[in-house]
Design a protein around this nucleic acid. Structure first.
Lengths: 113, 113
DNA sequence: TTACTATATAGGATATATCCAATATGGCAA
DNA sequence: TTGCCATATTGGATATATCCTATATAGTAA
């Protein structure tokens, strides 16, 4: 029983923005969307803010703000290495979210078609 | 292949509001949350705007606007009987949404734990 | 120390969302 | 027709979200 009502709402708000939803899809398969990193592995450590900033075309502060919204919602985790910050998806939280959403929205005992 | 990117976003925006998320949970199990209706079955036809309005404590126009957002996102369907409008969940769209969200957010081939 | 790099924070402009009161529409009853 | 009821639409006030520039912080390198 994870992902209480307020957490679901926070996660939905975080995902309901086109930039953030797009970033989440990039992070799901980072090697397909970002170049290799010198100081952190795309898969193990995550993607640094600089790469995400370039890819969005937004300013660095705006990108940072988006990443913080995603992190506060528990959708990504961050790790600081030297002076880089790497973000990667929190698969546990994400699958809990999907499951909790199903529980909340679908009528009892419905998973697939 | 249903629920394209823009549709996912529309659905997420619709669900990312506390009133609308709450309404969706009421509609999932209408007999548990609303009194019986004279002119339409809670399950078969849906719940009328008046009942939802009372339950939210919002004004009638605001409730109508919320229901329209949910309907535009494909999360509910509406049916007019006499001069009532009944809303009920669109289970097909909802399960497609949950599935599409999983596809977008979870790493390949992850459904449950 | 100074200089450089990466990310975070502050402040403010603009856009969008939420909500209500007032009113319009459309169906039903007399 | 008139009157009533349920829902939809309009217009506008307030709150929140999005985004930028400028600046701060923190780590690295010389």
């Amino acid at each position: 029983m994870a992902t209480d009502p307020p957490e679901i709402l926070t996660a939905l708000r975080a995902l309901s923005n086109p930039r953030r939803l797009e970033i989440m899809t990039w992070l799901r398969d980072p090697t397909a969307h970002f170049p290799p990193q010198r100081d952190g592995d795309l898969i193990e450590d995550g993607v640094c803010v600089g790469f995400i900033t370039k890819k969005c075309g937004l300013s660095q502060p705006t990108t940072t703000a988006h990443m913080q919204v995603l992190a506060d919602a528990g959708l990504v985790t961050s790790k600081k290495i030297r002076n880089w910050v790497f973000y990667k998806p929190d698969h546990g939280h994400l699958s809990e979210l999907i499951e909790a959403l199903g529980d909340r929205l679908l009528s009892a005992a419905t998973g697939e078609d």
